[in-house]
Each structure stands twice: as C-alpha cells, then as structure tokens.
Amino acid sequence: MIAAAVVSAALLQGCSTRLLPPPSGVDQEVYFDANWRTKVNGGAGEQTETFNIVAQDDTLALVTSRGALYELAQANGQQVKHLETGYRPSAGVSRDGDTLFFGTFDGELVAASLAEQKVLWTQSLTSEILSETGNGEGRVAVQTGDGWLTVMDAATGKTLWRDKEDIPALTVRGTSAPIIESGKVITGFASGKVKAYNLRTGDQIWEYSVGKPEGRYEIERLTDISGRLVFENGLIYSVAYNGTLTALAPQTGRPVWQRNISSAVGVDVKGNELTIIDQDNVVYALNARNGSTLWQNDSLKERDLASPVFYKEYVAVLDRGGWIHLLNRTTGEVEAWTLADSKRPAGSRMVSNDEQLFILTPTANVTALHYW
C-alpha cells in the first residue's frame, strides 16, 4: 500500500482523454499514415506514459495490459513469438537479451523468456511497479511506487540489495526507470533527487536534486522525476516536475548544464539534439551538449502532449486526442499529422527505428507509421 497520494502525469500536463479535432491552419507537407497494423491481445492501458515498445535489431518487444508478451517483425508486423503470462502489468517492458521484464499492480516483477515460452521467475516487491526496469551487467533494477529501489540477480530474481527514498505526501503517479551503466545504477525519485549507487554493493555514490520544492500547497511542491532518464553523449539527462532539466556527469553527479524547463514526461536525445515538452505543452529542441535553445513551438499548447521522440527529419509528439504531429527538426514547424487510432485516443510511448514510428494503441493494435 502506498501511503502518499498520487496524481497522474497526464493530469499535471493538462491532459485529458477527450477526442480532439484535427489540427487547423496548417498545410501538410508530407503524407503521413499507417504502414501496417497488427492486432494483439490487450492494449496500452489508460496511462499513455506507462506502456512502451522496445525496438531491438529487426524486432519489436512489448507487453499489453492483459499480460500478453509479443515479439513482432519491424518490417511488416508479423508475429515472431507470443506468450500469455496471466499477469496484469502496471508498466511497460524492458529487454535483456531474450529475457523480458515487466511489473504488476500487485508489486510483482515478472521475468519471461519468449524463446522458452515460459515465465522464468517472479519476485514480490513492496508496492506496484510504475515504470520499466533497468537492465545490465547481470542485474535488474526496479523502483516501486513507495520509494524502494531494488536490485536483483537477473537470472534468478534473488534480491541483492535495496534502498529506500522518502517520498512526499503527494506525488506524480509514475516513477523513473533506473539506468545501469558502468558499474552504477542511477535513478530519479519522487523527491526530485537523482541518485547513483554502486551496482554490486548498493553503496550510494552521489545524489543531485533536480526538483526543487517551492510553494505553499502540496501540488505546487511536486518535484517528481517521473519521466525517463536518458544516458547519451556520456551524460545523464533528467527532468523533474516543478524542477529543472539537467545534464549530469554520471561519474560525479555534477551538472554539466541546466535549464529552467520542467516536465512530468521524459526527453529524447539523438546525437547533439534533445527534445522535451514542458508542463505548459511547449515543444523544445535544445543543443544536447550545452542546453542552448534551437527552437520552440507553442502552437500545440491546447492539445495535451505526451513524450516526444525523434523520427527521421522530425520530432514526433502524441496528443491525448490520439493525433501524432510531426515537427520539422530544423525549424520546429508542424508539417504533418495523423491519428494513431481512429476509434480511441492516445496510446503507448512511441519508439522509432528511423524508418518507421511504432505505437501500441488502447484498442490493442500495434501500429507502424511512416511518411512519404
């Protein structure tokens, strides 16, 4: 049981699940539509930021809200492997080789093998799991909604160590997924702190406060790091609600650069570019090396946006009406849009392999989109 009250990231970003009309006043520069759709058993649940798709090599891996695991071919959506686990996932999937990991509302971490067509092990934790796990170096790291970080042996599920972070009375419904890198596990907490630990011993190496609680009321003092941490360019990129966007040195935790941009959703980084959507639904592109602004676009402020993703020459953003918008990576102008699913709005976090854009919709379709 989680003692703290929670609010959703969608609510904090001003989001709703209402149907929105198509964008107006913008001419489409390219034709943007579905390339293929594959029906699966279960959709993306009710929280857009919770479920995901993992693109690796030439396949996609995902878990649905009904606990069905899939591996699909990226080229045409053909089913490669499928396993019904019988569990009720509360968050998306992570992948380490052939093993897939996901958490449940009952606080169970599930490890399954599609090749062996079975659940390998489960581990009961202290509360529901609201993000993917971090994987690497023979370990799996997971954060639960009550502030516990647990590191386990990836092969057996045996708990190796854990640490507790005190969480505020009111938090965003969601947690940051840990990152395992170079003998460290790094994660962000609802307290607004990013912490790094020795992966083997659990000893804390450093911490840095990205969120800075200010204001009279609890909702004004929310500082959660609920968006994904990103490790790229030798830096850790983190953003907090009512906090800052910060690039940290993973060795020391010292900020390399920082911007007064806050968000309840994550960032995407590709090469020297970073894109983020702030809590007012303004889309930014920044120089990932120094944080300087390349462009910003506030034309979608009323459309309630989810996490952005780089896709070829564009930044793709999903609104809560289910429309996916393509913003030119150079100018920031909206040049195309399409519905992810005509029957129901929103969907999972998107992922791109540069050739296509993939999303799991609430109506149980995995959809690949492309433009020409």
Rank of each mutant, 00 (worst) to 15 (best):
Q28K: 01
K118R: 14
F189C: 02
F101A: 04
P213L: 04
A3K: 10
K312A: 07
E214P: 01
V210R: 09
A34N: 00
Q279P: 00
N242A: 07
S263C: 12
Q78F: 08
T59S: 06
S263N: 12
K195G: 02
L327P: 12
K212R: 04
K312F: 01
T99L: 02
W257M: 09
Q13C: 05
P308H: 06
K195P: 01
Q56A: 09
Y197S: 08
Y197F: 13
T156H: 03
A111W: 13
T338P: 15
G103P: 13
E220H: 11
G243M: 13
F310R: 03
E29T: 01
Q74V: 12
F32T: 02
T133C: 04
G211Y: 04
I186C: 12
A306K: 09
T246W: 15
G157T: 00
G25P: 06
R259K: 11
R329H: 11
Q279M: 04
E313W: 00
L69M: 07
L114V: 04
V185K: 01
D57G: 02
G192L: 08
T363K: 12
E218M: 01
V30P: 01
P168Q: 09
L60D: 01
E302R: 12
V6S: 10
I324R: 11
T64M: 00
S124L: 02
T144Y: 07
S263V: 14
T252V: 08
L130Q: 11
L369C: 14
I180E: 08
F32K: 04
G45T: 03
Q204C: 05
Q258N: 07
G14I: 06
L360R: 09
L360A: 14
I219L: 14
Y311V: 08
D98L: 13
F51I: 01
L120T: 03
A155I: 00
N52M: 03
R95V: 15
T144H: 10
